[in-house]
Write a protein that binds this DNA or RNA. Structure first.
Lengths: 207, 207
DNA sequence: ATATGGTTTAACCGTTTGGTTAATTTTAGA
DNA sequence: TCTAAAATTAACCAAACGGTTAAACCATAT
C-alpha cells in the first residue's frame, strides 16, 4: 500500500522533504504550495505531477511521520525487557528523538485534534501497538510487591506526558520559569535523569 | 491598555465570541473571516469595523485567553498555601478548566511555537507570575526532610505536564490505550486522583 | 420632522492560492 | 539517430480570501 521509501535526491524526494519541513512547521493551512516548491527548488506544477493535490501531499507526510514514531511505542509496549529498564529506555529514546524534531509531536497532536475522523479512518495504520503485554507486566510487578500499586494506563500516560509536554511547551516554560534559551536547553537536557528518578521514586513500594 | 470586558450580546461581543471559537479550534490560518462572520450572524464588513484586520482580531483573542489562564498559575506560584495543598489545588483546577476548554492549551502552545518573537514581544503581558516563592517553598520542604530532594523547576514541569498533556493528546491516547470515547472520559476523570497520588508518592522522603 | 453620528450591509476590489494546460526539455530504448 | 515516454516549466485560470467603499439603516437629541 505505502510507496517504498525514497532516499535519493530525485525531484519526488526533494518535494517530499520540503513538504515535510513546511507542513510540520506550519500545519496544513499555514503551508503554501509555492513555498514547498521553492524550498524543493522546482516548479510548482511538479508538486501536482507527483502528488495530485495539497491534501494528498499532506497525507503522505502525515503517514511518514506516524510510521517513524510508532515503532518506538510498539517496542515499549510489546518487548520483553524488564519493566523499569523498558521505561528508562523509552524515556531516553523519546527525549532524544523529540528534541531533535521538536515540531513533530505538536504536528501530530494538531492533526489528530483538528480532523480526528479523517485521521483515524483514513490515515492511521490498522495494526496498532498492543498494550496488553505492558499492562500485564505492571500488574505482575505490583503483585510481586516490586512497585507501588498503580494503574498501568496512568503510568504510561504519566511517563509520556513528562517526556513530550515540556518540549511542546518549551517557549511557555521558558517564560514561566524565567529562563533564557541557553538555560532552557540545559534544563531540558537534565530531564532524562529527572524523569527517571521521579518515576522510580513514585514507584517505590510503600515500606 | 486592554479594553474592558464586554459581557452583553452586542455585535462586538458576538464577533469576539465567534472569533474565539473559530481561532481556538482552527488556528490563525485555518480560520476564515467569513466563517467568523457567519457564526456571529453578521456581515463580514462588520468584523473590520470593530477589529481592523484579521491579525488584530486574532491578537485580541490570544490576549483574552492568556489573561484567563495566567491567574491560576500566579496563584500556584505566589500564594501562601502549604506546598502539597497548593499542588493538589493546582491539579484540580487545571484539570477542570482544561477539560472544559480542551483546545485552549493547544492553541496557546501552537501560537507560541509558530511565532515566538511576535508573541513574547507584543502579546505577552509584562508582569509574569514570579516562581521564586514556590521554589523557596520546595527547597524548605526538602531541607526539612518533608519531601524527597527535587529541583523545583522539574517538579512544577512534571505536574503541569501530567495535567495538560493527556488532554492535548486525548485522541492519540484513546487509540494507543484502545479506549472508546466513553472509557476515555472516565479515564481522564480518574486522573486527578491518579496524578495527586503519583506526585505524592514521588515526593515521599526516602526512609 | 430632521439632522446627526454610530451601526450594518451589499457589492466590489486586488491578491493569493490551489490547480490546470500546453508546450518544452530530458531520458532512454530500439 | 530517431522516437516515444517521462519530467519539467511558463503561463494561465477560477475560486477563495482579506479588505474597502459607499450607501442604507437606526437611534436619539434638537
Amino acid at each position: 500500500m505505502d510507496k517504498p521509501e525514497i532516499q535519493d535526491d530525485s525531484s519526488e524526494q526533494r518535494i517530499f522533504d520540503a513538504a515535510h519541513e513546511v507542513f510540520v512547521q506550519k500545519g496544513l493551512h499555514g503551508a503554501k504550495m509555492q513555498e514547498i516548491a521553492d524550498r524543493a527548488g522546482i516548479n510548482k506544477a511538479l508538486l501536482h505531477y507527483y502528488y495530485r493535490s495539497k491534501e494528498k501531499l499532506y497525507e503522505t507526510v502525515v503517514r511518514a511521520v506516524i510510521n517513524r514514531v510508532l515503532p518506538v511505542l510498539r517496542d515499549l509496549l510489546e518487548s520483553d525487557k524488564p519493566l523499569l529498564e523498558k521505561i528508562d529506555y523509552f524515556i531516553h529514546f523519546y527525549l532524544q528523538t523529540v528534541s531533535k524534531n521538536p515540531f513533530v509531536p505538536l504536528f501530530l497532536i494538531n492533526e489528530m485534534n483538528k480532523n480526528p475522523d479523517h485521521f483515524f479512518e483514513t490515515i492511521f495504520p490498522k495494526e496498532l501497538p498492543k498494550p496488553d503485554r505492558f499492562f500485564q507486566q505492571v500488574q505482575s510487578a505490583v503483585e510481586a510487591g516490586e512497585i507501588k500499586p498503580i494503574t498501568p494506563q496512568h503510568l504510561i500516560v504519566n511517563v509520556i506526558s513528562m517526556c513530550i509536554f515540556p518540549i511542546l511547551a518549551r517557549p511557555m516554560l521558558g517564560v514561566i520559569l524565567g529562563m533564557q534559551a541557553h538555560d532552557m536547553r540545559a534544563f531540558l537536557n537534565q530531564r532524562e535523569v529527572e524523569i527517571r528518578s521521579f518515576v522510580h521514586a513514585a514507584l517505590r513500594p510503600a515500606p
